[in-house]
Design a protein around this nucleic acid. Sequence first.
DNA 1: AAGACTCCCAACCGCGGAACT
DNA 2: CAGTTCCGCGGTTGGGAGTCT
Length: 286
Amino acid sequence: MGRQPCCDKVGLKKGPWTAEEDQKLVSFILGNGQCCWRAVPKLAGLLRCGKSCRLRWTNYLRPDLKRGLLSEADEKLVVDLHAQLGNRWSKIASQLPGRTDNEIKNHWNTHIKKKLRKLGIDPLTHKPLPVPDQKLPEQEKKTESTETGTDLQRDGDDQEEEELVLLKKSPGFCTDDVPMLHPDEIVVPLSPPPPTSSYCSSSSASTSCDDGTTLFPIMDMDWPDSGTMCLMGLEDDMIFMAAPWEEDCLLAPQPQSADTFSAYQCQRNSAALVEQQEAWNKLELF
DNA sequence: AAGACTCCCAACCGCGGAACT
DNA sequence: CAGTTCCGCGGTTGGGAGTCT
């Protein structure tokens, strides 16, 4: 049976998403929930195929996503799960809340595989590799050829060998010094809530900072469609919204959480985020 | 300073399978 | 039960950013 393309490709946009497209998609999904991806682009006013929208949402725009590199513990878990499940990235990702299969797959191909090799472990079989100095060039090539996915650059120089020796001496699984994602990295720009708005409940007051920033716990926001929207892994964390950022947002702040979140997402894509993040870090709230 | 090279990740592609008709 | 549609998954790629020469 002939299979039709996932959508009519004529006139559809491809390539990197713009902030405006992100905003449209986020606004639509926050307002309507996730359903029927094929219909989403049309309803959201996007010149994208549904598949592209789904990917963008699940890999980048979902509010429950953690950003930043995997922690050492997460990496260890990924290695363990990969040993059990193989390249079933979605299954592996399901064990790491806030992480996507794409992210884990990328991380595996670019970081973890290298590390395992340095530790003398075959990333495919999770069994010890032959000792490098005993390995013939042909054998090495053969091992290489079993690799799939993103190509691994083979250094194979003296420095690499020295690293290998050092890593083998070091106890346990070794990762780079990767900063964990802190709750303060998840921020939502916000205009001051109207007195009776749903941003804050009586149980959680806003926090005023020295620089005039007003912070509001996000848990009290009204998230549309709670059936499809959840903050996996974040429900116990305090997520704050910083009002001073709103003027840089692509969207005019509106007293509705969905739009506020859209603004946040657009904000996240903008270069100004870096500066804002730095400003935020100065607050050192955590 | 600038071109070459490498690394990384967002996004795309195509397939398998579930769900629907 | 066959045909069709759609979703989700895993593999792959393109290009931007960073580093090297």
